[in-house]
Design a protein around this nucleic acid. Sequence first.
DNA 1: GTTGAAACACCCTCAAT
DNA 2: ATTGAGGGTGTTTCAAC
Lengths: 158, 158
Amino acid sequence: MRSKSQNFDEIDNKLLALLQQDADLSQRDLADRVGLSQNACWRRMSRLTEAGILKGRRAVVDGAALGLDLTVFIMIRTRHHDDSWARRFRARIEAQPEIIEFHRIGGEWDYMAKAVTQGMAGYDALYKRLIIGMDLERVTGVFSMEPIFEGRPLVAPG
Amino acid sequence: MRSKSQNFDEIDNKLLALLQQDADLSQRDLADRVGLSQNACWRRMSRLTEAGILKGRRAVVDGAALGLDLTVFIMIRTRHHDDSWARRFRARIEAQPEIIEFHRIGGEWDYMAKAVTQGMAGYDALYKRLIIGMDLERVTGVFSMEPIFEGRPLVAPG
DNA sequence: GTTGAAACACCCTCAAT
DNA sequence: ATTGAGGGTGTTTCAAC
């Protein structure tokens, strides 16, 4: 049984799911919702934190309220496959605050970046900053017409 | 000046960035880092919360510690474009806990899902659960070979 | 904007069961 | 595993500048 080897059970999973949805829940609320005493619940959180599973909390901000209303996935294919170019490219990517996620990927593209911009004008500005002098083979923006959901909690398979 | 029309300044931006990176910072630490008194800093957080910009906090969990070590973006093209099919499809997607993000997208694909699975076997299982009976035209997994960064803070453009 | 202080809630620990 | 209780810490509010 895998849950045994990982040393956690359904209650831990529920705890993790709850905290990923709302880390402002008080110990009392948490304890109530998982059906444990406040004390036992706190011990579990401690264990999960020490095990490195709970890594901290982050504030959630409303992008739209900041004018960041367009989500776009940028697919990139490069002509260069040496280390020094890759480092330069990563630095370029990191310098773009609109890019909130970045992966090296398999398949017909080399990289994928997720960006959130102020409309299409914001994307265009980002695009120009991104490509200049990088000699990319191909770049295409895949636009989110409707972000149906984001940020769902990670849950350990049963 | 746009920052004036949005009624917030550099300090608010710094506050939001800090909280998005670590919401466990105490009011004292926060205040120190933005160069404000604890009191003034707290008032700003209040304003940002009431304005709906700060929407809460979420716990961050280490996926790898749960065995969730493979990130994959699933591109989907469908043959159906009516409402009732779309609703059925969304319900199917929502029933898959590995899928943590889901967009309707423009371009040559209709939907994109981001999933985190226990290796390739986990992806294969998800894939089968996903497609059965949905009559999709085309589905392809774009695998993250290396998630270079994720979860960067949203920042309002200057 | 600032400091300082008080009221309060919550967290964490401990003791006992 | 549970309850209950204490001390300590941080948050929130308020008064005065």
